[in-house]
Design a protein around this nucleic acid. Structure first.
Lengths: 378, 378
DNA sequence: TATCTTTTGTCAATGACTAAAGTAAGTATC
DNA sequence: GATACTTACTTTAGTCATTGACAAAAGATA
C-alpha cells in the first residue's frame, strides 16, 4: 500500500465519504448542517448530496420544522440504494447476512458445509449470500467474510486456520469467483470489531478488543482503524505466555507452555477438567475456582497489552458458550486491578456477546466501511 | 483530529510530500523517475519540483550520464533551504541539535538546567536551540522536544515525568513561547523511533521499538506511523507484569509488584543488588545471572506484545549505560525462543544504542517528518 | 549528418472546489 | 395583509492543480 498521489478523483472520494459519514452519524441531517460539519462550501454539499441521492445512497425524508427561515430538507442514508453481505464461515456452516447502508440486517441465511475444503467453503458461502440477497444481488456492493484464524486481508490469504485446517489459502479470490462480487476477508475478531466500530456505542478511536471463546483473539483499533500488522499477523493474543504461579507448567496445543489459551479459553478450562479425570462439561457453579483462575490470567494479560497501546476503551466479546456465570465480571475486575498506569486512568472496559450474527454483520460492515472512509493510501 | 475535507490545497500538500519523500529515499533522482514512482504526470512533477526548488527544499545537482537520450538533471534535498532543531531534555541539561533537510546533524549545543521547573526547562531548551542554530534561525521550521515520561503530543501536555517531577505540564506551549518556533513534543522512545524511521535501515512500516535503560519504554509503529494511544498513553511497557517464577514477588516503585521494570531495567537490576546488601555498581561479568534473568523476562515480555501487534521488525534500543556484556544478545535470544506464532515467522530483531544525540536528532526528525508525509486528518 | 531516445517543458482542457449572488420558503412585526 | 427578516438551498462564474498531447532539449547511434 504505497501512498497514492493526490488528484481530483481523490478529493471527490474524500468528500463523498465525509458527507456520508456525517449523515450516518447524525442522521437525519440538513445540507446546512453538513456544510458546517464538513467544512465544505454549501455549493459543494449541494453537488455531492445531489450525486449521492441520484445513486440511492442518500434519501430526502422529512422536512424539519422551520427555525425562523426556510425549513431544512433532511437527509438520511438510503435503505434501498445499496446492500452489503457478510458471511461467517465455520467448519460446519456458512452463515450469511445482508445489511443495508445503515448496517441493519435485512436478511439472513445459513448453508451447511459438505467439507472444509476451500472450494466447497467458498461455494457454500456464495450460496448462502445468494439466497440471503434474494432479489437484491444487483445492488450488492460486496461481500465480507469472517474466517477463524490468522487472516491477511491485504493479500486475501487465510494464513492459518485451525478450525478449517487451512494454511495459506487464497480465500478472497475463491469467494470472489464463486460469488461474483468484490470480497473482503477478515478474522473473526476483526470482523466483530468492524461491527462494533460501525455502531456508535463502541466507536472509540483507540480501542482494544478481545474475543473469548474456544480460542482467544485480539483486535487493535488505532485512530479509528483496525490494525492488522505485518502480513496480517496481529491479534496473536492466544499464545502469549501467561503469568505462571508455583504450579507446574501447562503444555499448549501449539507446542509451547503456559499460553493464555491454556488458562483463559474454553479449550484451556475444559482441558484442565480432563487432566483431572473429569469427563464432563464445564459447570459455571461447580467449577468456580477454575473460572476465577481463567479470569485472573485473562485480566492481567489484557492489561499488559493495554498498557503498551493505551486505548481509551477495551471491549471483551464473549462467545455465547463462554458466558459462564460471573466469568465476564471477574475478568473485568482483574483487568481493572492490574491496570495501574502512571498518571493515566484505566480505559473503559465493556463486555459483550459475540454471536455468529454479530460476526457476519461485522464482515458486512467491513464492506460498508469503504464507503464512509476514503483512504489516501491505495 | 477530525477528517479534513478534500481540496486543491490538500492535493498539493499530498503531492509535494510525495515528491519530497521520493527524493529523500532515492536521492539523487531525475524528474522522470519521480514521475514513475509517484504516479503523477510529468507535467505535475515539473511544476511541483519547480516550486520546491524555488523554496530551497530541492536542488539540482549533477547531470546524469545519458542512457541514450537527453541526460537527466538529478534532484536532491537542499541542504541549505530549511533546518529543524531537536532538544533532549533531562533533569540536568537541554541537549540541542540542528539538522538539515536530510536529517544530518549540522550543529549541537548543550545548556545546563538550573532547575527542573517547567519555565526554566523551556528557557534552557530555547537557549540551547538558539546557540546551536546560530545564524540559521530564520530557516528553522520548528523544534522537536524529547521529554522523559508519558507525553501527549496531540495536546502538547507532558502527562507525567518522573525525571522532571512534572504532571500535566503544557510544555509545548511553554517552549513555543520561549523559542518562538512551532514545537512538537514527544516521549524519549517515540523521539528515538522517529530517528530510526527517518533512516532507511529501520524504516519498516510495522515495527515495535523498545528502549532499555534506567527505565523501559515501548513505541509502536503501524503503517509507518507512530501510534500514541488515547491521550498519548501508549508505550507503558515498564509496568506490565512480568512472568514470575517460584521466587517472592518484587515490589516496584510504582506500587505494583513484578513489573517488567523490576527485572528488565537498570533500575531493577541495581535494586536487586542492593536488596542483597551489595552496595556497588552492576558488573557485566560478576552479575551474569542477574543480567541473564533480566534478558529472559524482557524477551518474553517483548514477544507477548509483538504477538498481538505482529510487527515485521523489532528494534531494541539500549541506552549506552545498559550495554552490559551480552545483555543485548541474550535479550534477543529470549525473544526469538518465545516468539512462536502460528504460521508466521518471528519478526526481525535488531539491537541498537540510543544515546542522547540520537534522541535529540529523532525529535528534530519529527519536525522534518511533517514535510514528507501529508496527513489527511488535520 | 540524420535519426533515435530519453528527459524536460509548455499549453489547453478537465473538473472539483469556492465565493457571491440569487431563489425558495418559512417566521416576525406592524 | 404587507413588509422585513431568517434560514436553506441552488446557480453562476471563476480559480487552480492535474493531465494528455505536443514541443523542445540534448546526447547516443549509425
Amino acid at each position: 500500500m504505497k501512498p497514492r498521489a493526490g488528484s481530483k478523483a481523490l478529493i471527490r472520494e474524500i468528500n463523498e465519504a465525509l458527507v456520508l459519514d456525517v449523515v450516518r452519524t447524525q442522521s437525519p441531517v440538513s445540507r446546512a448542517a453538513i456544510t458546517v460539519q464538513t467544512g465544505l462550501s454549501a455549493a459543494s454539499v449541494t453537488g455531492i448530496t445531489g450525486k449521492l441521492i441520484n445513486s440511492g445512497l442518500l434519501v430526502e425524508t422529512e422536512i424539519a420544522p422551520s427555525t425562523g427561515g426556510r425549513p431544512a430538507r433532511l437527509l438520511e442514508l438510503g435503505r434501498e440504494g445499496v446492500f452489503a453481505a457478510g458471511v461467517r464461515l465455520s467448519a460446519t456452516e456458512a452463515h450469511a447476512v445482508v445489511v443495508d447502508l445503515r448496517g441493519d440486517v435485512v436478511a439472513t441465511h445459513s448453508e451447511p458445509l459438505a467439507s472444509t475444503e476451500p472450494a466447497e467453503a467458498a461455494a457454500a458461502a456464495a450460496r448462502a449470500v445468494r439466497v440471503a440477497a434474494d432479489g437484491r444481488e444487483p445492488k450488492l456492493i460486496g461481500v465480507g467474510a469472517a474466517v477463524s484464524g490468522v487472516v491477511d486481508q491485504a493479500s486475501g490469504l487465510v494464513r492459518h486456520s485451525g478450525a478449517m485446517s487451512w494454511a495459506d489459502i487464497a480465500f478472497q479470490e475463491l469467494l470472489e469467483e464463486a460469488a461474483d462480487h468484490p470480497v473482503i476477508i477478515d478474522s473473526y475478531v476483526n470482523a466483530y470489531t468492524r461491527g462494533l466500530l460501525f455502531d456508535d456505542v463502541f466507536a472509540g478511536r483507540e480501542m482494544l478488543i478481545f474475543s473469548v471463546g474456544t480460542s482467544l483473539g485480539a483486535a487493535v483499533v488505532v485512530e479509528g482503524r483496525i490494525q492488522r500488522g505485518f502480513n496480517g499477523s496481529a491479534g496473536g493474543f492466544a499464545h502469549s505466555r501467561a503469568i505462571t504461579g508455583p504450579e507446574p507448567a501447562r503444555p499448549c496445543h501449539c507446542g509451547a507452555e503456559d499460553c493464555f489459551e491454556t488458562r483463559g479459553s474454553l479449550w484451556g478450562m475444559q482441558r484442565e477438567l480432563e487432566r483431572h479425570g473429569q469427563d464432563r462439561r464445564l459447570d459455571p457453579d461447580g467449577d468456580s475456582a477454575l473460572i476465577a483462575d481463567a479470569a485472573l490470567h485473562l485480566g492481567i494479560g489484557m492489561a499488559n497489552i493495554a498498557k503498551v497501546l493505551g486505548p481509551g476503551q477495551v471491549v471483551v466479546g464473549f462467545a455465547p458458550e463462554a458466558a459462564l456465570g460471573t466469568f465476564a465480571k471477574q475478568t473485568k475486575d482483574a483487568f481493572v486491578r492490574q491496570y495501574d498506569h502512571a498518571n493515566t486512568p484505566p480505559p473503559i472496559l465493556d463486555t459483550a456477546i459475540a454471536d455468529p450474527v454479530a460476526l457476519a454483520r461485522g464482515a458486512a460492515c467491513s464492506v460498508l466501511a469503504g464507503l464512509f472512509t476514503a483512504s489516501p493510501t491505495g
